[in-house]
Nucleic acid binder design. Structure first.
Lengths: 234, 234
DNA sequence: CTGTATCCGTGTTGATACTG
DNA sequence: CAGTATCAACACGGATACAG
């Protein structure tokens, strides 16, 4: 059972696995190492380059990212591709099966946000907040809406299409949408999940809304975090 | 942000966390360390003692299990209780919120079994195989059935109630069920997932069926692993 | 039996510096 | 920009000793 590609020197297959027929244990053999699941999260909206991954994973070091990408490729969760010239940059892209792990990423997130110490004001990648929209949308509240919103979060641009109680999100040009939001992902999170007043952040120049402003104001009400656990008595 | 209880010596809160507002990252702060999710799996059918956990987690060492139990308790995923006298043994039990992680455990397992290198013949704990029944039951095939099956897997005893396309599983006395199966969890897995002939294992004395034998023969057909990934061309 | 504490060898992780 | 090399800190697993 070789899950980790051998190094050039022929050693080091992988020393610590669970050796357990349980599928859950095997999943952890595949993606249980530190950072792996967050790399998958960063790839959920399409191929990314090494540096883009690094930017979305503050704290990871280059050598660890290299190791993880090798491991995930060997485990068939992602493939390494070269973009057609003239770009011809190297990108990492989830396999079809890799994309199937989305519910795992979502459930982990939904479950953990019930913990009282979860802090939504910490830094956040663009992929994270867009993924949270898919996880946290309230189908009832979104049921009536049919609209496109555009997001420009640093280097990352997305278009979200809310319709039928769902939300489709793709990387794309925000200008094609009915409303556009620009700013840091963290500021968007502050408005949607942190209860910050949009007007305040706009006044400070931290967030900008163009186009159909009322649409965005309605949009931010579509997402509801699950209820927090009761604090222990005391 | 203290998620890890301090030791008596006052050091070591926890050095490596992700510092990310993303719920998924926070989930991994809570349960992302090696063994944590498998400990949760072992607790999914009710409270367990230290030694029982150890038995279900081959390869874990006592000090690591102690560390993880402390961490999971500090993170409110489980609580430590003392059984009422005369047993008065110490047991570990998931909190209500801890039990809510079941879908995560299940999705990890379901997703990973599509990998061609998943090996269902490896050793397996009793909790693992019973959990796999909940994960892998085919609602259509089970739709007609309403029956109770009992399992005696080493020290562990369960009763499964199949009804309405679902399966309820609890620790309990197998004798109360219409059919009883005894043997190692691995042997049960060999029949249900490994395509081994029940008669062969019985002939070797590795598995024993009492009561309504036809019921058990039908039972083993209710569980279907998701399709394997295609092997890479070559 | 149920843990807890400590030591030790090894492997993993991560920060920094560096190369193509 | 995309990684590799090196080194130090830490986590893990095994063994063992010990306490209730």
């Amino acid at each position: 059972m070789k899950l980790q590609k051998e190094t050039k020197t022929g050693q080091s297959e992988r020393k610590r696995w669970y050796d357990d027929a349980c599928g859950t244990a095997f999943a952890l053999d595949l993606i249980g190492e530190r950072w792996s699941i967050l790399i998958i999260r960063e790839l959920m909206f399409g191929p990314r380059r090494f540096g883009e991954l690094r930017a979305g994973l503050p704290g990871i070091s280059a050598n660890i990212l290299t190791q993880r990408l090798e491991g995930l490729e060997a485990n068939r969760i992602l493939v390494r591709r070269r973009l057609p010239p003239p770009a011809s940059a190297r990108v990492y892209e989830l396999t079809e099966w890799g994309y199937e792990s989305e519910p795992i990423v979502q459930m982990l997130g939904r479950w953990a946000t019930r913990h009282p110490e979860h802090d939504p004001t910490l830094p956040l990648s663009a992929a994270s907040i867009m993924m949270s929209f898919r996880t946290m949308i309230d189908a009832k509240r979104a049921g009536e809406m049919d609209a496109r919103l555009g997001f420009r979060l640093g280097e990352d641009a997305f278009v979200a299409h809310v319709h039928g109680g769902q939300i489709d999100i793709q990387r794309g040009d925000p200008a094609t949408a009915e409303a556009q939001v620009s700013g840091a992902a963290t500021m968007l999170a502050a408005v949607v999940y942190g209860g910050e007043a949009l007007a305040d952040l706009e006044a400070q120049g931290l967030l900008t809304v163009d186009g159909d402003r009322a649409l965005f104001e309605r949009f931010v009400t579509l997402f509801v975090l699950p209820p927090k656990l009761a604090e222990p008595a005391g």
